[in-house]
Design a binder for these strands. Structure first.
Lengths: 326, 326
DNA sequence: GGCATCAATGTGAGCGCTCACCCCGATGGC
DNA sequence: GCCATCGGGGTGAGCGCTCACATTGATGCC
């Protein structure tokens, strides 16, 4: 920086002012400095800057170590939103959702001096672990959880999973399928809990028991084989598209026709869901909006505002798997 | 840090030594310091550390702003490998593969003081843009490109796409399908180029013309409709699983049976490919190994070693879509 | 016993930047 | 003509850490 200052014939402080867009620098001076910067190929050292400002301009994102559609899409959404407001994104993945892993990930980020933390960490255990850690920076939980403990500096934003589940279930009922079975995801995940709850709300007290599974297509496949053997309901609402895909596979294999024998609706609108056999009716989530909401919520936290929990509505995408052919 | 030193009754330097695992500290002293650290909830300020060591312990990863399976899996693989050697991962996504976007992303990271950069940026244009930028830190290109310009500090690692394509094509020929058509990906992507080249190597000069498409299932679907209309070959090697999925969709819709009328092989082994209709034969890439290789290669670069370009072999996964039923 | 050696620890400087504060000269109001 | 004001810019301190070097006492060897 002092080299630049020398070349431009100003003080280091003026260079700093130019770099930070301070108003009280003559355009002429500003230009001279800019030229010197370009000529020397100077780049500001952000470590020094962070050291004195105590702000790194970095958002830490904790995400499960998988290529699952939801988490990765959320990560992309967050990165985009963060970049818009000039933040870098640092990533830590966790393999297990226990308190220790979370604790390590948070320590990792706090040591790094991030300005805020977003956690794509969808289980109740994780939420509890986070609530137990005092963080000097705001933390936003990406989750639709309706029961996140009210801890200071801990915010929550999410896509309204329950609403999405209601849309899916209601759609099946509207199509005339009276018996809607729910293949639920792992119940320690918030999203799985909420999708189950939304389904139950619409089905009412007379609903059949749900079936709990994992998130993978393999789980859906196993279950599909069992269902084909033990009796096929008129409609199934699967907790995500992968489960639905596994069901489709099993039913195809066993000669159970979709949607003629059983209608299916998924959740996520994964890349490719429009091209399953048959194309899958599903619930789409707007991950771009989710990322923006998370970043907004962190910024509000910096400004000292108390941020209400916010949810983004989900959207039903109707395709062939749930529409009875004429 | 001085608080910790005072509480432990040592100098700041001893605290630093404990933090860095320096050997010449008495176990007794070490413990006293550790206790003081715990008691005060002290966390080392990494900005100050970076400022003086000129190493941030951060790996910058540039990746396309999509939830595509390949790039996201590679990101996860990189993060895992980076964490093992104690690096943080910072992410920048790019929406366009032009020189400007790349330049911005690199500037972004260099200003942030990353120790190395990994680029999941698979087009020729990107590679040229990178080669044109002088980087003070090592850069590794995640790519199977056989023609990356030999620029100092620019390394390349990748999964051997050409080998994978040969496996896929040979498999189809071995199954007795004499006419193997290739639905290629966008030819400005290295991976698409190499998969095309591998296919052509095996097919020999008498090969039919390939068909170029995008990466999406929608592209495969459009193409599938056209193929069903204009004449179905005995086998198709699709450049990725999404294309294959689109083909399956179109063929199913038009009553073209797979693999009876046409055998299909994809590439990627995406989550779910085992449950397509029918389950898809495809080529699997080991993204975990890829991440480790990339990190190794950066570490070798630090050590001043000249790193040869390295490739990871691909693996064929045979499923129903390419095996003629008895 | 004297000296080299080494383990264990302390001291001070400085990494590159921003912040608070100071300084100078031009302007304007009375 | 005098002083308050303000735009434009300079000065020095210090953020929290590590590095190079200094210091001390214990040990070993002749």
């Amino acid at each position: 920086m002092s080299d630049v200052a020398a070349l431009a014939g100003v003080s280091h402080q003026t260079v700093s002012r130019v770099l930070n867009g301070h108003p009280s620098v003559r355009p002429e001076t500003r230009e001279r400095v800019a030229e010197a910067i370009a000529q020397l190929g100077y780049r500001r050292n952000s470590a020094a800057r962070t050291l004195v400002t105590r702000r790194s301009g970095t958002l830490g994102v904790v995400t499960p170590a998988t290529a699952l559609y939801g988490p990765t899409s959320t990560l992309v959404g967050l990165e985009e939103a963060a970049r818009v407001v000039g933040w870098f994104v640092s990533v830590a993945t966790i393999r297990q959702f226990d308190g220790d892993s979370m604790h390590n990930a948070l320590e990792h980020f706090l040591g790094q001096g991030v300005d805020g933390i977003a956690i794509i960490a969808p289980t109740t255990e994780v939420a509890q672990a986070i609530a137990a850690i005092a963080s000097p920076v705001p933390v936003v939980l990406i989750s639709s959880a309706s029961d996140v403990p009210p801890v200071p500096h801990l915010h929550a934003v999410g896509v309204d999973q329950r609403h999405g589940a209601r849309l899916a279930t209601q759609h099946l009922l509207d199509q005339g399928f009276s018996e809607v079975v729910h293949v639920a995801g792992p119940q320690d995940w918030f999203d799985a809990q909420d999708r189950l709850a939304g389904w139950r709300e619409v089905c009412g007290p007379g609903a059949p028991e749900h079936i709990e599974a994992g998130w993978d297509a393999a789980d859906g496949y196993e279950l599909g084989l069992r269902i084909a053997r033990e009796g096929v309901p008129s409609a199934i609402f699967a907790a995500n598209d992968q489960l639905a895909l596994g069901l489709l596979h099993a039913f195809w294999e066993k000669g159970v026709r979709v949607p003629d024998d059983v209608a299916i609706v998924g959740f996520d609108d994964e890349v490719g869901a429009a091209h399953y056999t048959p194309p899958l009716t599903t619930v789409r989530q707007d991950f771009g909006a989710l990322g923006r909401l998370a970043v907004d919520s962190l910024q509000a936290a910096f400004a000292g505002k108390d941020v209400a929990r916010q949810q983004i509505p989900a959207e039903l995408v109707v395709r062939a798997s749930s529409v009875r052919r004429a």
